[in-house]
Write a protein that binds this DNA or RNA. Structure first.
Length: 447
RNA sequence: UCCUCGAUAGCUCAAUUGGCGGAGCGAGCGGCUGUUAACCGCUAGGUUGUAGGUUCAAGUCCUACUCGAGGAGCCA
């Protein structure tokens, strides 16, 4: 009696009879021959029916199967270089086919390019397509690799609250909701402040969950709901933080290469660009980056490009600036020591240079830009209080946060990593909305 | 919030200076023993986003609106 196997393991069953349970992704009839591309969640494999090998009614059933019908197939595995699929190169000679459900014939997702609007309205079906399946498998691998590295390196996963009181960082627009008789609550835009409390109990921690930004950002790099990893580390300075980011990112990329080679190949990702992606990553000061950008701006002759590259010391980088900086290297680039004015209030000032802070962004190559942002946190309670007052933040809301610095304060650092941005970069795709199963953007909350 | 672009068959797109709304894919039927988004033949499929306006005549020009996109700002 043949056993039920996943498509992903098919290479171990050459010459054997097996059972597949899945869905008809595509069908091609050719007279007395029919090809079914079957997907079962673990992969895509071609199944072949010869009229002569089957009961006439079974063959007739196969040649009339609607796309997306659910089926159970019995047959023999053989190697064939012509066979499409993921991983591909194998096919199943159908001996028997049982229809679990014949799908309605008006399945809307054709196997070709669709417009963004249509594809997103049909996201619940779009995720069945090979490209989206491959991207989301890479995303899962990124998330698994992330936890793997952190757990192996002494970090504890600490869930931080999603429902939070007002004013975490002050600047960002938050989603607001009613909270019983306590007034308004807000969906978390970061778990960092809570993780700063957690490190004094657990040393090295991380939170890994959804994050919400109500800002009306409409670009290929923004979602209103996205997943963020936020490690926080006690007794760690800015250099130590960059070491952690470097090792973690290296592990994530190498794992994706190992676990998802078929997916990346299907996505036509230039693997060689990822293979060299191991630490150390170059580290550049904001001052040097600013000098480079100002120089570039002055040399630019095209007036349109010149306007985009406009830059002076003290500005935060725009997307065109990030792109220019990432062109300098094949690897991700650390830029550290940003002006305090463009960064959050809790970042530790540079010694003897209070206008600069111990912050660091990690910019992914090939124009992907910022994938991690972090800093050494202010550890002195008096300086922190002064900064909170200067920013006009409500002091009483930060009472607990200030207390962390009263009882055994230490230098500590942390960063946030955007899962969808990392996934989009590894997959080589245009837009972060394809790097999450059901993207939430400013204009979309369906499906 | 600002700037720019777009909306024509189920989907992706054509339609010349304002002059009879088409094709491919998908769907149905038939043909084909190696297809890779197969191919060949036939069939069905339309209130051109909405509301006005200009004109002998509007998919095409004008006004307003709706919906969407990607860029700025802000950020991961």
């Amino acid at each position: 009696m043949p056993s039920h196997i996943p498509v992903s393991k098919i290479s171990s069953y050459i010459g054997q009879d097996i059972i597949l349970k899945g869905w008809v992704y595509n069908r091609t009839d050719k007279g007395k021959l029919a090809f079914l591309l079957i997907r079962d969640g673990s992969g895509f494999v071609q199944c072949v029916a010869f009229k002569g090998d089957l009961q006439p009614e079974t063959f007739d059933l196969i040649t009339h199967l609607p796309q997306e019908s659910s089926v159970i197939i019995t047959g023999a595995v053989r190697e064939d270089k012509r066979a499409p699929g993921i991983p591909g190169g194998f096919e199943v000679g159908i001996r028997d086919l049982q229809v679990v459900q014949a799908a309605d014939m008006d399945y809307p997702m054709a196997l070709k390019d669709h417009g963004v609007d249509f594809a997103l309205d049909n996201r619940h079906l779009w995720i069945r397509m090979q490209s989206q399946w491959a991207i989301l498998r890479v995303r899962a691998a990124v998330m698994t690799a992330t936890r793997e590295w952190l757990n192996a390196n002494g970090f504890f996963e600490m869930s931080t609250p999603i429902l939070t009181p007002a004013a975490a960082e002050g600047t960002t627009t938050l989603f607001e909701t009613e909270y019983f008789d306590e007034g308004s609550a807000y969906l978390a835009q970061t778990g960092q402040l809570y993780n700063e409390a957690n490190i004094f109990a657990f040393g090295k921690v991380y939170c890994f969950g959804p994050t919400f930004r109500a800002e009306k950002s409409k670009t290929r790099r923004h979602l209103t709901e996205f997943w963020m990893l936020e490690p926080e580390i006690a007794f760690c300075d800015l250099d130590g933080l960059m070491d952690v980011e470097e090792s973690l990112l290296t592990h994530i990329v190498q794992t994706a290469l190992k676990e998802c080679s078929a997916e990346l190949k299907f996505l036509n990702r230039d693997i060689s660009k990822l293979e060299s992606m191991a630490g150390p990553f170059p580290r550049m000061s904001y001052d040097d980056a600013a000098k480079y950008l100002i120089d570039l701006y002055e040399k630019e002759t095209d007036p349109e490009k010149k306007e985009l590259l406009k830059f002076e010391w003290g500005m935060d980088f725009g997307a065109p600036h990030e792109t220019e900086l990432t062109k300098l290297n094949e690897k991700p680039l650390f830029v550290y020591g940003y002006p305090s004015a463009v960064k959050a209030f809790y970042m530790e000032p540079w010694p003897d240079r209070p206008e600069v802070c111990k912050s660091v962004d990690l910019l992914a190559p090939e124009g992907y830009g910022e994938i991690c942002g972090g800093s050494e946190r202010m550890s002195d309670p008096d300086k922190l209080l002064a900064r909170i007052q200067k920013e006009g933040l409500p002091e009483e809301a930060f009472k607990w946060y200030l207390e962390l610095r009263k009882y055994g304060s230490v230098p500590h650092s942390g960063f946030g990593m955007g899962v969808e941005r990392v996934t989009a970069w590894i997959c080589g795709i245009e837009h972060v909305r394809e790097a999450i199963p059901f993207p939430r953007t400013i204009k979309r909350i369906y499906p």
